[in-house]
Simulated scan of single mutants.
Amino acid sequence: MLWFWPPVNVKELSTGHTVVVKSVEGAIEQMQTWPKKLPIPPKLKAAYPICYGVMEGKHTVDEARQAFDAAAREAKVWRAE
């Protein structure tokens, strides 16, 4: 697992519960549950290659966390700590 800190809290759309995302893999899993609308929101579109890029050594874990946080805010699923 590629862990990041601080975690990002998001709303689980199927249950309404808060999910605490602490890893790049968890961020990718959460983004895959978000509604698919076209055009793809720009911050979500940017977050995927950054998160996958961490696994290839192209981006840092912190860059992935920041991109995921921005995408969650854009998708209106971000929750305060």
Score class of each variant (00 low, 15 high):
25 E>K: 02
29 E>I: 08
4 F>C: 09
11 K>A: 07
32 Q>F: 11
80 A>D: 04
77 V>W: 03
81 E>D: 15
21 V>Y: 00
55 M>D: 04
65 R>F: 02
21 V>K: 00
17 H>S: 11
67 A>I: 03
34 W>Y: 11
52 Y>T: 01
2 L>T: 04
50 I>T: 06
17 H>P: 00
71 A>S: 10
38 L>F: 13
72 A>D: 00
43 K>I: 07
7 P>C: 08
64 A>H: 01
65 R>N: 02
25 E>C: 01
11 K>N: 05
58 K>G: 01
9 N>P: 00
77 V>P: 05
5 W>I: 03
44 L>Y: 05
9 N>R: 06
38 L>K: 10
65 R>V: 02
39 P>D: 09
78 W>H: 15
42 P>D: 02
16 G>I: 05
38 L>R: 11
43 K>L: 10
79 R>E: 08
47 A>I: 00
32 Q>T: 08
25 E>D: 04
29 E>L: 07
34 W>A: 06
3 W>D: 03
49 P>F: 07
65 R>T: 03
69 D>V: 04
1 M>P: 10
1 M>T: 00
31 M>L: 14
74 E>S: 09
15 T>V: 14
48 Y>M: 14
8 V>H: 01
68 F>L: 05
31 M>K: 01
29 E>R: 07
46 A>D: 11
76 K>P: 03
48 Y>P: 11
74 E>T: 08
10 V>W: 02
78 W>K: 14
60 T>D: 13
12 E>P: 01
11 K>L: 13
66 Q>Y: 08
68 F>N: 03
47 A>M: 11
8 V>G: 01
2 L>V: 02
12 E>W: 14
31 M>Q: 02
41 P>N: 09
42 P>R: 15
62 D>W: 03
34 W>M: 10
55 M>C: 02
42 P>F: 12
63 E>C: 07
3 W>E: 09
5 W>H: 14
71 A>G: 10
40 I>Q: 12
75 A>D: 14
54 V>N: 09
53 G>M: 05
35 P>Q: 12
14 S>C: 10
78 W>F: 15
